[in-house]
Computed example of a mutant assay.
Amino acid sequence: MSTRADVAKLAGVSESTVSYVLSGKRPISDSTKQRVLAAIDQLGYKLNYAAAALAGGSPRMVTMMTSNLFLAPPSRIDGALVDGIVNGVRGSGFHSVIWPISNEDDSDIEMLLELNFSGGVILMNVMENDPRVHTLERAKVPFVVLGRTEVGFAYNYVDRDFENVYKLALAHLKELGHTHIGVISGNSEIHDFLKKAAAKLKLTLNLLSIRNNHDGGITLAKDFTKKYPNVTGIISLLDIATVSFVNAATSQGISIPGDISIVGVNMLEEQAESSSPKISTVAFNAYEMAISCGKIMVEVIEAGKNSKKKKSELWVGDFIDRGSTSQL
C-alpha cells in the first residue's frame, strides 16, 4: 500500500506539502497541487480521513444529501448529477459520498452533523423553505444547494434557470401557432415560473401528470387523444416517461410532429436522441452543471466556515431542433 512518503517522492515535494494539499490548511500553488494529485492518482494512495480530521484539517469529503435513490426508479438525470459532482470535487483532491435521506426526517441531517466526517454538504432534491438549509446555516457547515429554495437568507446554489428555460420552449411553440400546451410533469400542480411564462405569451396550459417511468409514458399515449383533444403542443419536465410516450405515440395513431409538437426541457441529450422520432429540447447538460456545483463546493470549503460571500450559478441551455415540432 502506498504511503504519504511515496506520494511526496513521486511528486518531488516534502511530506508536509502533501499533507497541506490534502488538508487545505495552507495555500499551495496550483502547479504543485496538480503534481501531488497526479502522484496520488498514479499510486492509488488512500487518505485516512479520520486521521486528517484529528490532525486539524477539514475532512476532504463532500456529502451529497439526496432522496433515497433505491426506493424508486431514479431519473437518468440523477445519475448524471451524482457523476458530475464526484468528478467536480475529485479534481481538487476531495472524495464524495451519497447520504440518502428519509422523508420528512430531520434526524438525517442531525446525524450527519454529529459524525462530523464531511468537509461540506451538497443538498439535492430540496423542498420549499427546506429545514436542512436552516440547520446547516446555523451550524456553519459549508454547503451548496443543487436547486433553489426560499429560506429568507442568501446561500450558495447551482440550478437551472427554469424561468428562461420555460420561456424559450413556450416561445418556440407559440411561434409555430400552438396555443394549448400540455405540461408533462410528475407533480400535481404546474410551477409558478411556467404559469407566468405562459400567461405572458397568452398560452393555455394543461397539466399531464404522470409517473416518470416507462408505463407512465405508455398510459399517456393511450389516453392522450381522448383526455386532451385541444392540446397540440407539449413541454415536458420528465425524461423517462417522455421518451416512452414518444416511442408509443405512433402505435396509438398520434403523429409527432404532425399531430403534436413536443419540446423536452429536463432530459439528457442522449435520451432525446434515443427516441423515435428524436425529441427537440432546451439542452440540459446535467453532468457539466454538476461538475460546476462540485467545484463551487470545494471553493466554499476552502474559503472557510465564516466566509460571507455566496456563490451562485443559473444554467439555461440552447434550443436544439431535432424535428419533433412543426407549424400548426
Rank of each mutant, 00 (worst) to 15 (best):
I109D: 03
E110V: 14
M111Q: 14
M111F: 01
L112V: 08
L113I: 14
L115A: 07
F117C: 09
S118N: 12
G120A: 10
G120E: 04
I122V: 14
I122D: 09
I122C: 08
L123I: 15
M124E: 08
N125L: 02
M127T: 15
E128M: 11
D130W: 01
R132A: 08
T135Y: 02
T135A: 15
L136T: 02
L136C: 04
L136A: 06
E137N: 10
R138D: 09
R138A: 09
A139P: 01
K140E: 06
K140A: 02
K140S: 04
K140D: 03
V141A: 05
V141W: 01
P142A: 03
F143L: 05
F143Y: 15
F143Q: 08
V144S: 05
L146G: 03
R148H: 08
R148E: 09
T149Q: 11
T149N: 09
T149G: 09
E150H: 10
E150W: 01
E150G: 04
E150V: 07
V151I: 14
G152M: 08
G152V: 08
F153W: 05
A154Y: 00
Y155F: 12
Y157R: 03
V158W: 05
V158E: 07
V158C: 07
D159C: 09
D159P: 02
D159W: 03
D161Q: 01
D161S: 03
F162W: 15
E163A: 12
E163K: 15
N164T: 13
N164Q: 13
N164Y: 05
V165M: 07
V165A: 09
V165G: 12
